[in-house]
Amino acid sequence: MEIEFKNFDDCVIAYLKGELDEFTAEHVRLSLDTILEDMKSLGSSKLVLDFKEVNFMDSTGIGVLLARYNKFSKFGVRIEIKNAIGHIDKILKMSGIYEIMPKLAV
């Protein structure tokens, strides 16, 4: 999985690309935790996860997201989710992720 970050005035957008499973999870954890450090020093308070190019995610992804929510919210950074479709959207809904990471209308 590749992640590209872009800084905007009001948020940072993380463009995720590829498959999010146990094999790629550690890379996602590390990348997002690194950007949290940058966001803290920049005073940025919103991270948007763009799932447009994610073609697979299983429950490992839910674990990664729940843990990021806990970490990021400690520093007042909220996370929102954009462009999750099909199966990934279904898994995010089923697991209640959208209740803590709102789904952005596109």
């Binding site: 999870a25 954890r29 299983d58 429950s59 490992t60 839910i62 674990g63 990664v64 729940l66 843990a67 898994i91 089923m94 697991s95």
Partner: peptide
């Protein structure tokens, strides 16, 4: 602690 969601069997079942 290892960031497992515990949703694996739930997804298989669904």
């Amino acid at each position: 602690k290892e960031e497992r969601s515990g949703m694996g069997f739930t997804l298989m079942e669904s």
